[in-house]
């Protein structure tokens, strides 16, 4: 007997199935992302950094020295894992985190004011530049924060904390009528 298993997103019961009214400040939740932990082998930090920089369509998030999250919206977890293994063979270790992490994309004119309610890091664009990423504490929850545009941030959180972070973000964004929904294409 063959079986198919349907994947669930932790926010499945919390976000509407259909995209609703989108406010200027919006929280966009991709339904699925391919995410892989990349850990450079001893002494290979530089070559892995260079290799990741050349990885094309993959977003690279800094998590710690010699450690990154590689994120892709277009690849499957398997293909991302496979491609990285080919690209960085014998220089890094990989752990699939596609099911273990949840991505939130926050955008709009008030994003910095929203994030300042949870994150102590100075997010002035001259200091936390576009393309910067780092693990930070948001309220009580450790996340990976990346600036993807002047007024666009991507938050990656451990799956078990996703609902708690979502609840926190709703409270943080209430002042600006923050809307939320699953990505249309994701």
């Amino acid at each position: 007997m063959s079986r198919t298993y349907i994947s669930r997103h932790p926010l499945d019961d919390l976000l509407p199935l259909e995209p609703g009214i989108r406010a200027v400040d919006h929280l966009d939740v991709p339904r699925s992302s391919a995410i892989v932990s990349v850990m450079a082998m001893d002494g290979e930090e530089a070559s892995v950094t260079a290799g990741l920089a050349a990885s094309g369509d993959v977003s690279i998030r800094f998590t710690g020295p010699g450690e990154w999250l590689a994120v892709s919206q277009s690849e499957t977890p398997e293909s991302l894992h496979r491609n990285l293994s080919l690209l960085l063979a014998e220089t890094a270790y990989f752990v699939d985190q596609s099911d273990g992490r949840v991505v939130f994309r926050l955008s709009g004119p008030n994003v910095r004011r929203i994030l300042a309610k949870g994150i102590a890091t100075d997010l002035h664009p001259a200091i936390f530049e576009v393309g910067t990423s780092s693990n930070v504490l948001c309220g009580h929850i450790s996340i990976n924060l990346a600036r993807t545009g002047e007024n666009e941030f991507e938050l990656i959180v451990m799956r078990s904390f996703a609902i708690a972070l979502f609840d926190d973000l709703k409270v943080m964004g209430r002042e600006f009528d923050l809307s939320a929904g699953f990505s249309v294409r994701g």
């Binding site: 932790p10 309220g139 904390f161 926190d168 409270v171």
Partner: peptide
């Protein structure tokens, strides 16, 4: 601040 009730500590939920 907001750290009270369900926001006092994050709830972790199993898959």
């Amino acid at each position: 601040g907001t750290s009270r009730d369900e926001h006092a500590a994050p709830v972790r939920k199993s898959p």
